[in-house]
Write a protein that binds this DNA or RNA. Structure first.
Lengths: 399, 399
DNA sequence: TCCAGAGATGAATCCACCC
DNA sequence: GGGGTGGATTCATCTCTGG
C-alpha cells in the first residue's frame, strides 16, 4: 500500500502495482511528451530536469504510455475518471490508446485549455491551446456540474422567465392575471463548456517554482472540482513539480504523487508545505477591468489604420503608419472630458515615452476656449470628428 | 479538366481524377461523419436530405477518407494547404490518416473553432468546439499572417519600445546615449492564434439555408484569407450547401465544388447565383455578411453621429444632425474606388432626393487630381479620413 | 540535405513601485 | 493605501547557420 498524501520517488508503473485496485477517485496524467531526444531543461537557479523521453519510435512511446494507462485504470474506482494532458504531436495516437484501454463509450470530453501567450516569430498560427482528454471508468462516473456566468449577449430576462407550452406545443412565456411575465427561479448560470480560458502561468508569477511545463493551479482545481468531492483521493503518476497535489490539498482532497526524478519529488514536497497560488488579476477582475476604451472610441480607432491599446488611461491606440523614428499615439476625447483634460491625459501618458507626435480626436465642441494654446506644440495634433468638420464646412458655405 | 467556378455532381474520388495535378491552392475538406446508420434530415420546408454515410466499421470509413485524401494531395500545388474539418468521434483516427498521407512534418496547426451554444444538459461538459486540422503539402506553403488586437493587459511600453539583451540573456529597454528609450519598429498587432471564437450559426439566422452542418461564412473566410490570395483556386470536395464557394466568391478566389447529392449541388448553385445576381442578396444573408463586406465603411459611419443605411448604391448613411430643409448624406470612399467614382455614386444616388448637402469621406490619396473641380459645388463636402489629415499636419509641421 | 546548436523572438501578465 | 503604470521574464519556442 502506498501512503496517502505523499509523493513517492519511482517509476509509476512499478509503484502503481503497490496500490490496491479501485481505490482512487481521479487520475490526472501529464506524461512526458513524444520527442525523440533527451531533453534537458533548467530553471532559473540552474537546476536541471532531464526528461529521458527518448523513444525510438511512436510505437515504443505508445507502449510505454499504454502499460501505465492500464495500471491507472485498475486503481480507479468504478465512479472514477481520468484526465490526460496531451502532447501536441501525439495527442491523436494517445487518444487511440485511450479508446483501447478505457473504451470509446467512456470518452467524455476533449477539453481545450486555451490561453494567450507571448508570441514568437513563426510562420503559421500561434500555438495557444493544449488538449486534455477526459475519460471515465464506467458510465456511472462522479461528476459535479460547474456553472459559469451567462455570456454578455444573452438576454437575461429570457432566462429568468418561466415558460409554458400551449396546446400546439409552442413555448410561451407564462403570464400572471395582469398579463405580466412571471419570473422563474434564478438559474445557476451556463454549465461549464469544454473550452477553458485560463491564463498561462506568467513568467513573473510567484507561483512559478522553476519547473518546466508547470501548470497553473487553477487549471487543476477545475479538474478536481469537476470529478471529486472532499476527502476523495487524487492520483498523479507524473507529479512533476506537484501542482496537482497542491491543488488537491487546497481543495481538501487526498493525494498520491509519483515521480521518477529526485529533484521533482523534493520540489513538490517543499511546495506542498508552503503553497503559493498566484492571484490572477485577469481571472479575478476579468478582462473588462483592463479596458479603457469604450465602444465609441474603439470604433474610431479601428475605423482608421490604427491599433487599439486597452491598458492605458491616456493612450487609446497607435497609428500603424510609421514616422521616421516613432509611433503616433492617439486619444479620442470622451464625452465627459473637456478638450483640456483629454490633452493632459495623453501628454501625461506620453511624457516618458518616445512619441514624436500625439493626436487628439475632438468629439464635441464644449469648452474649446479653455484650451491654453500656449502649452501646445506642433507635435500635438488636434483633429475634429467628422461631424464637427462637416458642420463647420456647412456654416462656412453659408457665409 | 473540371471547370473553374462550378459545382459538380458526383463522388469526389471520381471527379478529382479529372483534375490536373498541382493545380489547386487550397482544399477545404468537410467529410461526412462516421455514423453507423443512414441519416435523414429535413429543413424547414420539409425537404429531406439523405446521407448514406453508413460504414460497417471505422476501418472502412478511414479507407473511404484516405483514398480521397490522396487525390486531394495530388491536385494540391506545392505551396498549397489543406484544412480538414473533423468529426468529434473520429478526429484522432482522421489525424492518423493525415499523418500518413501528408506527413507528420507538414502538420501545421490544430485549429479550435470554439463557440457558445445552448444544449440539453447532459452529464458532463458542454461540447462547444470543433477541430480543424491544418496541413501543408510542403514546408514552402503559402501563408498570410492575420493580426488581432493586443490583449487587454498588455502595457504600451511592450508595444512601443525596443529592447536588447545583455550577455546573460536578460532583456532590457534599449536606451540611447542620453538615457532615453528608443522606439521600436512598426507594429501590426498580434498574429492570429489557433483558437478561433466564432459564433455558431444561429439556427434562425437567415444565412442558414436548411442544409445540416452548415458552417458560418466567417470561418471559411478566415481559412481562405490565411492560405490563398486573390485569383487562387479553392477546392471543396464535399461542398454541401456551398458555404466555402460563397466565401471564395466574396473574397475574389476561384472555386471548384463537388458533391454527391443532387439536392446539395442545386442548393449551392442557387446560393452562389443569388450571391452574384443581386448585390442586395448579400443583405438577405444577414448583418454579418454585410458587416464583413464593408466593415470599414460601417465602422466610420457608426463612429460619428450618423445612421447607417442599408446598402444603397451610393449612400452609406445620414448624419443625425439636421440642417434646415434636409438630411446630410454620407459616403465613404471604397478601397477600389477613385475619388471621382465615389463622388459620382453619391451624386447619382442623391439626384432625386432632397439632400441639401452630400459628404464624401476620402480614405486614400490616389487619383486626387482626377477630380474635376468645376463640377463640384459647395454642397458637396469632401473630408479626409483622420489618418490622412494627421499625415498632412505632420508634413506641414516639418516645413 | 539533414541535424544540432546558437541566436533571435516579442507579447502576456504578475509584481513592484510610484504617486 | 489604492489605483495605475513600468519592468522583468519567459518560451516541451522558432529560425537560421554551419558542418
Amino acid at each position: 500500500m502506498l501512503n496517502i498524501n505523499d509523493i513517492i520517488l519511482g517509476d509509476c508503473l512499478e509503484e502503481l502495482k503497490h496500490l490496491e485496485e479501485e481505490s482512487v477517485d481521479m487520475v490526472y496524467l501529464d506524461p512526458p511528451f513524444f520527442t525523440q531526444y533527451t531533453q534537458v531543461l533548467s530553471d532559473k537557479e540552474g537546476n536541471t530536469y532531464e526528461f529521458e523521453d527518448s523513444w525510438k519510435c511512436i510505437d515504443e512511446y505508445l507502449e510505454y504510455i499504454s502499460e501505465r494507462l492500464i495500471e491507472c485504470r485498475r486503481v480507479l474506482k468504478k465512479t472514477g475518471s481520468i484526465f490526460v494532458h496531451c502532447d501536441r504531436n501525439a495527442s491523436h495516437y494517445l487518444k487511440v490508446e485511450m479508446d483501447k484501454v478505457f473504451g470509446m463509450n467512456n470518452f467524455q470530453s476533449e477539453i481545450v485549455w486555451s490561453y494567450k501567450r507571448w508570441s514568437n516569430s513563426k510562420k503559421g498560427l500561434l500555438n495557444n491551446h493544449q488538449i486534455i482528454l477526459f475519460y471515465s471508468k464506467t458510465k456511472d462516473f462522479q461528476f459535479n456540474t460547474l456553472y459559469t456566468d451567462y455570456s454578455e449577449t444573452t438576454n437575461v430576462d429570457q432566462i429568468m422567465q418561466d415558460r409554458i407550452r400551449d396546446k400546439d406545443g409552442k413555448a410561451k412565456y407564462k403570464l400572471d392575471e395582469n398579463g405580466n411575465t412571471i419570473m422563474g427561479q434564478a438559474k445557476k448560470g451556463v454549465p461549464l463548456s469544454d473550452v477553458w480560458e485560463i491564463p498561462y502561468l506568467n513568467p513573473k508569477a510567484k507561483e512559478r517554482v522553476g519547473y518546466p511545463t508547470q501548470k497553473p493551479i487553477i487549471l487543476l482545481e477545475q479538474i478536481i472540482k469537476l470529478s471529486t468531492k472532499k476527502g476523495d483521493i487524487v492520483l498523479d503518476p507524473f507529479a512533476g513539480s506537484g501542482t496537482t497535489l497542491v491543488a488537491a490539498k487546497i481543495l481538501d482532497r487526498n493525494y498520491i504523487g509519483i515521480d521518477r526524478s529526485k529533484d521533482a519529488v523534493e520540489l513538490a514536497k517543499k511546495r506542498i508545505t508552503e503553497q503559493i497560488k498566484t492571484e490572477s488579476g485577469l481571472l479575478k477582475k476579468g478582462k473588462k477591468a483592463y479596458q479603457n476604451l469604450d465602444e465609441k472610441s474603439l470604433s474610431i480607432i479601428k475605423s482608421i489604420n490604427a491599433i487599439p491599446v486597452q491598458r492605458n488611461s491616456g493612450i487609446d491606440g497607435f497609428l500603424k503608419e510609421y514616422i521616421e523614428d516613432g509611433m503616433i499615439a492617439i486619444r479620442v476625447q470622451r464625452d465627459e472630458e473637456t478638450l483640456n483634460e483629454t490633452i493632459q491625459k495623453i501628454e501625461k501618458a506620453c511624457r516618458r515615452k518616445p512619441c514624436p507626435y500625439r493626436v487628439v480626436i475632438r468629439t464635441h465642441s464644449d469648452f474649446i476656449d479653455t484650451v491654453n494654446s500656449s502649452n501646445l506644440d506642433s507635435k500635438l495634433i488636434i483633429i475634429d470628428q467628422y461631424d464637427l468638420q462637416i458642420m463647420n464646412k456647412i456654416s462656412e458655405s453659408k457665409n
